[in-house]
């Protein structure tokens, strides 16, 4: 059952990921954003299979809820009409496929040859309470810095969005 769900979510993630970057039917950024939502949601399914329930919820809320909405806002705000309808530049298609094969092949080869998962059992029960305790004791400084980072990011966005950008 778990294997079946894994293959279902993994194939869904990869197919939707492929349709985000290279949809054969359309070059519309809105379609890419919608397939990105599907990718994120099926990846949340993989997180659930890994017993990371809180992270699955955060993944859906932050990515599918906030980040994609931001993407769609910007796409609609800019109202890009002249979507590139022509096919891909052959050189960049070649380089993209080469990069895909090189990086994917290299990493998968090294994963298979190193026997990285040999003898490891899935054992961590990713309870939300433990995650919270870890976050607020061991990683509390990083957590505070993250708050400052979000504040700085917000100020930067407000500054950049001003009409008369110097």
């Amino acid at each position: 059952m778990e294997a079946l769900l894994f293959y279902l979510f993994a194939s869904l993630t990869l197919i939707c990921g492929l349709l985000v970057v290279a949809n054969p039917l359309t070059r519309n950024p809105v379609t890419s954003a919608m397939f990105l939502v599907l990718t994120i949601v099926s990846m949340a399914g993989l997180f659930v299979l890994l017993h990371a329930f809180f992270l699955a919820a955060v993944q859906v809320m932050v990515y599918a809820g906030a980040v994609i909405v931001l993407f769609l806002f910007v796409i609609m705000l800019l109202d890009i009409k002249s979507v590139e309808q022509k096919g891909f530049n052959p050189l960049s298609l070649f380089m993209g496929l080469l990069g895909l094969l090189a990086v994917g092949g290299m990493v998968i080869q090294s994963i298979l040859r190193s026997n990285v998962g040999q003898g490891l059992k899935p054992q961590l029960e990713g309870a939300t309470k433990e995650l919270g305790v870890e976050l607020f004791t061991h990683y509390v400084l990083a957590f505070e810095i993250m708050g400052v980072l979000l504040l700085v990011g917000m100020m930067g966005v407000i500054l950049l969005s001003k009409k008369d950008l110097k």
Partner: peptide, 24 residues
């Protein structure tokens, strides 16, 4: 573990292909 790592590697290379391939 290696199943998840292979999915992760494939997804990473798909993202990289998107960065190289797309012009938008």
């Amino acid at each position: 573990l290696e199943h998840y790592l292979i999915v992760s590697a494939l997804l990473f290379s798909l993202g990289m292909m998107g960065v190289i391939l797309r012009r938008n």
